[in-house]
Design a protein around this nucleic acid. Sequence first.
DNA 1: CGGCAACATCTTTAATGGTAGCCATAAGAC
DNA 2: GTCTTATGGCTACCATTAAAGATGTTGCCG
Lengths: 325, 325
Amino acid sequence: MATIKDVAALAGVTPTTVSRCINNRGYIKDETKAKIHKAMEELGYRPNGVARALSKQTTDTIAVIVPHITHPYFATLISKLEQSANAHGFKMFLMSSREDDARKESYLKMSLDSRVSGIIVCSEEIESEKLQKYGTPVVEIETHANPNTPHIICDNKEGGRLAAKALIDAGCRNLLHIGGIEDSHVPADDRALGFREVCETSNVKHSEVSYSSRVYSSLDYMKYIEEILSKFPDTDGIFASSDLIAAQVCQVARRTGRIIPGDLKLIGFDGVYISEMATPSITTIKQPLSEMAEAAVSIIDAIQNNQPHESEHVFPVRLIRRETL
Amino acid sequence: MATIKDVAALAGVTPTTVSRCINNRGYIKDETKAKIHKAMEELGYRPNGVARALSKQTTDTIAVIVPHITHPYFATLISKLEQSANAHGFKMFLMSSREDDARKESYLKMSLDSRVSGIIVCSEEIESEKLQKYGTPVVEIETHANPNTPHIICDNKEGGRLAAKALIDAGCRNLLHIGGIEDSHVPADDRALGFREVCETSNVKHSEVSYSSRVYSSLDYMKYIEEILSKFPDTDGIFASSDLIAAQVCQVARRTGRIIPGDLKLIGFDGVYISEMATPSITTIKQPLSEMAEAAVSIIDAIQNNQPHESEHVFPVRLIRRETL
DNA sequence: CGGCAACATCTTTAATGGTAGCCATAAGAC
DNA sequence: GTCTTATGGCTACCATTAAAGATGTTGCCG
């Protein structure tokens, strides 16, 4: 590929002049500009981003680390992050740990080595203190491992409250919350807190179950849900911690002859497309993922430009009524 | 962040020696190695990938361009590509055109400028001849704009045949194929060919409908499917060109009082997780996405290392039987 | 035991492709 | 005569690597 020197030689100027022409810096005669542009055109010249990054000391790239890509929640979040990144002039590295700590660690190092402008970590526990000494900005979405790291969450507790209230208002008296990964502690666990709070205040019978990270990884909760439903046969209202789980509750319900919402009412969490696509469509607690993604990217943008930024963003959630309630 | 010079100064050697120590090249005394490692440790040194890329003339990065991220087919494909990229030592840029030609063009330029090792374009028409002069390897998945560009597809026509046969064998006599984006020509269109072929040979009544790119973009086929079903009320078997469409057919069927598979049998395409997650679970034609992703990344790896590679890969598809047939 | 090749160890220099600060020159305005 | 506008070259710098060179150290042969 042609370099700036080739262009300079062809246009009869020095590389510096070409550089300034490209970057609109300093003074250049229109005539000279034209010559340079013609030379660039002729050679199909494209400035070398690597050299630029080295010289400018910024790659304009953010790394996004997620546990899974296909999970509808992460797929949606990734999509929003990509949009925001693009709008802010960032390219996006996508890295999926697949819940392997070694891979996560390796990806973190890779991001550092690539001199990304920032790292966005989603629903993953990381040792952000250790990262801090490298000076690469880190933003956490739905995690909060370190108090100094900027983080973005939705109002999980309120989400749990909304779900419990809605189920109780709809007449449910035997509630079940499916959520939380065993041996893991994330902000999403607060959904259970809000849920419990309302159930206790309203004096409604309720249970909570969590699942193994193996089930979470596989995205297949089917057998697990069957077990749970036979363990809690009287359940008439379920608050699932993701729309993905809720969609599978719909399936299991159908197979086991339960009518939704007749026999069993159901509320999901996230508010991503799968909640609309399930049959019946799922009533859910929606997170404002666009805004959350935008906030995450904005923080990195701000840090890169030495501008002030919030270190904690809590976004409101809301109930979307559909067919399962 | 510390540079190789800082490490060199602290260890009392030259940057070159540090470089050779890092890359295991040439002769270095164990004692010196130890000093260098100690210095690196102390400074928290991480080699600068940008400078490395400039010097080594390779970024070990691939760019993946897709029309959409959340669409279950693309989400799955992206996930598989990320896995293969990682296994081959590549980082992955994810870029979504959102079916905007200008954005696609801009992303293509960005990829070129970033000196990626290769570009993988999924289901997007691109002018790959124009790209060729830049020397950046391009691989197409489920597109085939240019005869010289390596491309990867599944056996779409055979998929159409399998679907038609299965529906006819199940007793359907009024078939409908939902597939194909208006004003666009992609290999996936061949699914209709195979479908038509079998229907005609078997003398079974069949129709084919395609949808607007607006509907495709929105991922929301609901209204469209309603219209189609009222336009073809006698339909007893549907072959949908994606599992996403099929899942929405399930929904519309339920709302309009059709029982699947009693009144209406249904086959999807892709074989991605949403086909398992829909209610009822969807019988589908599965593409081997893992293998296809691996092939795409392998080709870029091969080109980068001047090794030979196939220019056309056609992967077999197979019928997965579930509840809609 | 001198001489010389082979090996070991580290340094010097140049190159990767671009950007940016500084400098030199000159023409016209005030 | 000085200030502003305009033009474009020189050189250092970004962090690293490849190639070649410098220096010392063995080992072996005659």
